[in-house]
Design a protein around this nucleic acid. Structure first.
Lengths: 174, 174
DNA sequence: TTTATATTTAGAATCAATCTAATTTATGGC
DNA sequence: GCCATAAATTAGATTGATTCTAAATATAAA
């Protein structure tokens, strides 16, 4: 997994900051800050994972009995429409959400479906600016996904190919 | 909408080339090139849109009566696992596919759900190389999504905000 | 307070996607 | 070419994440 330069982590993405940002966006959109919405924002702000809508509902239901599916899904959809969170998909059955909208790279493994957040300078600022000038597109959130094979799975894949080569002379892989 | 420099379109993404690439990847994975799979690859190679799995099935069923949902979904999943096509999601209900895996930027509008392919140099090569060295991640496909508001919707949004400002003194927008 | 609007809820409904078991098609060895 | 084996396809049933609905509740405005 090797090292990651600390300098690459430009901004902080502290829960408190995310939380404030979510609530602010809801309010700015003219929506009420109900206890349910606040709970959902708090959950999203404090997770380091990429939860699915279903996970958000299930885990919130444990601490907030009586919260309904509809409220969770509606709120997540609203936050997505506002650009506060970003939908991720990677062949899994549910929709997962990226709660961290600072520029970073998602390394999505085709084999194990793990998503690794990679912080580095993707040079995205320049692209955003060009897109604004040339296409009139106003960027709210950036998602840079690299789809491929994580280190673990890559090595495993190599092993499998070697094993296969030993037993048969087939040219198939994966 | 403005202009797009021709120099930005680095490689060609001709249907014939996509078609050959798809078939080659299936074959390399040890799968048979059946008439159904060939039809699906041909469809994907020739579309300029970002079809959903359901659309692929429905449109293929028109010309290839008897093709089954399962075959279409299985083949699309296989192509996705191979990195030949990439899943896109943008708040719509179905899963859509990006059939064009050359480096480009998806401009995804939060309001009208339009996806604009933007060709330019996102400087992604450098990121891919760094990710390989630092995280051991082998990239198969890249997806750079900018999520925001397209020119049309941005202008419409401005109009709406102005209209609202004229009638009321509320600070809500969107 | 009263009225109007926004929000939530519980449960039903939807429908894209997957699964299943049977059938068809292709492949390789003889 | 023929047979045996594996691969792929099909039609239809099933699933289950998400959305919808109608009623109840909470909030804001007047």
């Amino acid at each position: 997994m090797t090292t990651m330069p600390d300098s690459a982590k430009i901004q902080t993405n502290a829960p408190a900051e995310k939380y404030r940002r979510y609530l602010q966006m809801l309010k700015k959109a003219g929506l009420r800050l109900t206890p349910q919405r606040i709970a959902i924002c708090a959950y999203l702000a404090h997770t380091e994972r990429h939860p699915s809508a279903y996970q958000v509902y299930e885990e919130l239901a444990a601490t907030h009995p009586g919260i309904s599916r509809a409220t969770v899904y509606n709120t997540l959809n609203t936050l997505r429409e506002l650009g506060a969170i970003v939908e991720l998909s990677f062949g899994s059955d549910h929709t997962h959400y990226e709660t961290n909208t600072q520029p970073h790279v998602n390394l999505i493994c085709l084999r194990c479906h793990k998503i690794i957040d990679y912080y580095g300078d993707p040079g995205v600022d320049a692209v955003m600016e060009r897109v604004r000038q040339e296409a009139g597109f106003q960027t709210v959130a950036v998602k840079l996904d690299l789809i491929g094979f994580c280190e673990e799975c890559r090595l495993q894949r190599l092993d499998e190919i070697r094993a296969m080569a030993r037993t048969t002379a087939q040219d198939k892989f994966l």
